[in-house]
Design a protein around this nucleic acid. Structure first.
Lengths: 250, 250
DNA sequence: GTATGTATTCTGGTATGACCAAGGTAAGAG
DNA sequence: CTCTTACCTTGGTCATACCAGAATACATAC
């Protein structure tokens, strides 16, 4: 599986050092002459063929690594991978790290993704999916009094719904966005204690989403999910108000 | 503006070499102790403080560069940048270079983004936005007989709609996804000639979307947009059938 | 002939030290 | 005080060397 890169004169005009190497590999990757599963020739040889030193080559390989295009396996070699969506996670994390006020904005994207996914889920779900969803639903009920586990179960249910939609792109995006939301707003569920009515809302809403999917009703599924988000937002709003009132009263 | 990284003992447990450095910088970036505009200390010093060699440090720096987090300026220094969404474009390009059959799947994500954005657009649009939308709509009408310009105008209208939603996240995602769709499926509009009825469909649909936004009706806006996508999909399907029939007849 | 254990080779991971070119800056000339 | 210039800084790159573990070949034992 050694991919011998048939270096064809490697035009000198293409930038210096790193840029040259990176552009070369990038082109090979995009053109398809390097395919997932291929193993590159050893760093030393490749560096020699490309006319650069090993550190420079490694910079380029490392750059491709963070893009998820290749994988450098210690004492094995560099192999081409199918781009791993998890790098999106990295990027989004960086991109939205600075401004924490964008959480609400990211939430808009999550709503977008889930609402589309739930439609697809209602159309594409298999019996196996139904079971998974039911299990996820059961976990929500079980952990309703456990803030930590409850949050996980909630997240898991939504993730299962998106998976049921069977759209790779939606799944990838949802994972990335969820990561951001969990990191920057972890414990948003902790205000569960405040409103006891929230418990029934949580259970009932998710059950209605499940029912809509089982009922093969995309339209209704999205409607319920959207309401679910809206109500959750409302709860958070009221909690925030209550919190600030509590603070000002103390 | 020099960011002196007050290395605090840098716990040794965090992986070896590159991983350690990358994790360290990542943490600083995410925590906010390194902010956009800051300039890192020179590579030599930083490498020394981190206890790694310069090549290794440069690997980490280069990795952050491809993520758009920092910028290495020749003979000036390494400065922290606000992550550039264009990195997403790069990634998606890699990710979907191999399998071109994922276009339909990416389309699902685009629909998701736009349907959410059009809701927000209906709520948040300003008079200025109305004008921009109207101009975009006018361009669609003007270029209805021009395949090239028409495609651009179509895309531009949708982009304007998403912008009107004023969600940074949705805008970024939409841009990236649009890039993929344009690259891998450019000229999907070329089948315009086939169905003359498509012209009226194009104009009328976009006008209805515009009206719904102006009418501040998120629900209806999404409904119309969704139908717009569905009909477009149907057109493409029929065109594909007609094309294959034409081929088999020849 | 097969299986097992060992030695050699290959490969990535890292460190050192050095050289170059050009941006920045401060000392020196006017 | 202004302007020029030499120096120092800083990224960009290279060459070499050593390490540790995976991969492989080989020799030995059964």
């Amino acid at each position: 599986m050694i991919a011998d890169l048939e270096i064809t004169r490697l035009r000198e005009g293409g930038g210096k050092g790193f840029e040259k190497v990176f552009a070369f590999l990038r082109e090979r990757l995009l053109a398809g002459s390097l395919r997932p599963g291929d193993r590159l020739i050893p760093e030393r040889d490749l560096a020699a063929q490309l006319g650069v030193s090993r550190p420079i080559l490694r910079e380029a390989l490392r750059a491709l690594t963070v893009l998820g295009v290749v994988e450098i396996r210690d004492r094995v070699g560099t192999i081409v991978r199918r781009p791993d969506p998890s790098v999106l996670n990295d990027f989004f994390t960086f991109a939205f790290a600075q401004q924490s006020d964008v959480v609400d904005d990211v939430m808009q994207a999550r709503i977008a993704i889930e609402c589309q996914a739930v439609r697809l889920a209602a159309e594409r779900a298999t019996v196996s999916d139904f079971e998974k969803l039911q299990q996820a639903l059961a976990r929500i009920v079980e952990t309703i009094d456990d803030p930590d586990g409850g949050s996980a179960a909630d997240f898991d249910f939504h993730r299962t719904v998106v998976n049921t939609g069977k759209s790779e792109t939606l799944i990838v995006l949802h994972n990335s966005l969820s990561g951001i939301l969990m990191r920057s707003h972890r414990g948003r569920r902790e205000l569960l204690q405040v409103f006891d009515s929230m418990k029934t809302y949580l259970i009932e809403d998710h059950r209605r989403i499940f029912d809509a999917i089982v009922g093969r009703d995309p339209e209704h599924a999205e409607k319920v999910l959207r309401e679910h988000f809206a109500i959750g937002d409302d709860f958070r709003r009221r909690a925030a108000i209550g919190e600030s009132e509590a603070r000002s009263a103390s």
